[in-house]
Design a protein around this nucleic acid. Structure first.
Lengths: 107, 107
DNA sequence: CGTGTAAGGAATTCTGACACG
DNA sequence: CGTGTAAGGAATTCTGACACG
């Protein structure tokens, strides 16, 4: 497994992301609620974003300006594989359970 | 002028830097006092660090473990051009003032 | 639907100081 | 010298809710 590059390290707080993107904190949290963005959390619950997240948020902002709804943006992102289709996640997790039950090494 | 890469963008708070480096916030602030590290500041005064800063702090931690004093670490860093020699800074700024006074475009 | 705001609490960060050594 | 800690204040972030539309 390769080290994650700086671009994907989740280290930026929401206030800084707000400055970087020009979006309000409210908007950023809402896009998370709509499953467009997935920040990490510190132990005490603060959101942490990566530079990739910041870029993604700027794309989202552009699409919102073009009049797209969050749901439509989400569909686009799934098509473009920028986020994983929930159906695929369910499939993958089921597979993991099967492997676990039938003795595939996972540790 | 080229865009600064992610590596040099000052966006990480001291708490996160502390986790990333294993250093206490007290240590990180002290190394700043000793001019080994130069965080940016938000409008209200919070320190912001880059990934480069995090790497530098880890080097500092290694050297401290080797028994070097902060002053010695600073000398090494100046020699290695990781930070600028204060004498050079003074020279450069004087030059800037001369240029300004004698009409070199600076805007 | 997408975003603003006021609300109250919890966690973060800041500075200057005292402590030890 | 380098680091810990308690102190008090200011700024940040969180959630759930009400508002408008």
């Amino acid at each position: 497994m390769s080290e994650e590059s700086y671009k994907d390290k989740k280290v930026i707080t929401i206030g800084t992301v707000s400055e970087l993107t020009g979006l309000s904190e409210r908007q950023i949290r809402y896009y998370e609620e709509r499953k467009l963005i997935f920040p990490a959390r510190t132990k005490r619950g603060s959101r942490k974003y990566s530079f990739s997240d910041v870029e993604l948020l700027m794309e989202i902002a552009d699409k919102r300006e073009d009049g797209l709804q969050t749901y439509e943006i989400r569909q686009e992102m799934i098509r473009e594989k920028k986020i994983e289709d929930p159906k695929d996640i369910r499939k993958r997790m089921l597979k993991g359970q099967i492997n676990a039950r039938f003795g595939v090494q996972n540790d």
